[in-house]
């Protein structure tokens, strides 16, 4: 068995840390995330507030720890939604082929041509700003890309012997697609999904930054950066704490995804 690659190891370690912190947040966060200490606004790191406080005197450490939850939730949720949309579409288009494939892929191409953040913005403008809508918007924006990957992998397997054998013994198409082909396209799908989680977290933070995602006073990294921007000249900590956490998490997902690709041999 080959040894653990550094990218996979480092990415995995950071991810494990972020995940552990987000799960343990209720026990390790020193203060409730929305508790305001109004006479201690914009304090630098110190003994009482380890990462300092924001413009309402809220503890930045607590908010940064809890901020991992909406980030991870949104990233994982949006990609899961993207998979739920993209996998069946890609499998069907690749397996059935012909005119259906042409039609589905042209629609997917049209959606891919549309910048995904813009698509998410459109969906949120139509539905209203909230965490759920942000998740839906990013998930839908992820669907077409995943569909294309799955379809390519399916095309390569459509005429494989084990697929032809399954069809020859009279298996139903649904079984062939999900029982025979899908397990064999799982590797590229897992790699793609892992890489997309980082982008989904970034898109979610961008929407919150624009005021279109998580709503105040929730602890969310994008929202924290948006609020901190106005005070950057007075105190950089409200910007640095969530910014650093966000950067590390996204880099970790990308490293992990790259490492996974090397490991699984997917392209």
């Amino acid at each position: 068995m080959s040894s653990l690659s550094p990218t996979l190891g480092v990415g995995g370690a950071i991810l494990a840390l972020v995940l552990a912190m987000s799960l343990a947040a209720p026990w390790i966060a020193p203060y409730p995330t929305t508790e305001q200490h109004m006479l201690e606004r914009l304090k630098p790191p110190g003994a009482r507030f380890l990462l300092g406080t924001d413009q309402y005197g809220r503890d930045l450490l607590s908010r940064t720890l809890f901020g991992a939850r909406p980030a991870l939730g949104l990233g994982l949720g949006a990609v899961a939604l993207g998979l739920a949309l993209g996998v069946p579409i890609g499998l069907t288009a690749g397996y059935v082929g012909g005119r259906l494939d042409d039609l589905v892929m042209r629609v997917v191409d049209a959606m891919l041509a549309f910048p995904s953040l813009l698509l998410a913005l459109l969906i949120i403008t139509a539905l209203g700003a909230s965490t759920g809508h942000a998740l839906l918007a990013i998930g839908v924006a992820n669907g077409p890309g995943i569909a294309r990957i799955v379809r390519s992998a399916t095309l390569a397997l459509r005429e494989a012997e084990f697929v032809l054998a399954a069809r020859a013994r009279g298996e139903r198409h649904l079984y062939v697609m999900f029982g025979e082909i899908f397990p064999n396209v799982l590797a590229p799908v897992i790699v793609e999904a892992t890489l997309r989680i980082g982008f989904a977290i970034l898109a979610g933070a961008s929407l919150s930054f624009l005021g279109l995602g998580v709503q105040p006073p929730a602890a969310d990294w994008g929202l924290m950066i948006r609020e901190a921007r106005q005070y950057v000249f007075l105190s950089p900590w409200p910007l640095l704490a969530p910014g650093t956490a966000l950067a590390f998490t996204i880099v970790a997902f990308n490293l992990f995804g790259d490492g996974l690709r090397d490991r699984l041999g997917a392209t």
Partner: peptide
């Protein structure tokens, strides 16, 4: 809105804040 939400919470007001353009 954000400060009112916190000040009113102990009395039983659960204020759901939505910030919009």
């Amino acid at each position: 809105a954000v400060v009112l939400k916190e000040m009113a919470r102990p009395v039983g007001f659960n204020i759901d804040v939505e910030v919009l353009a």
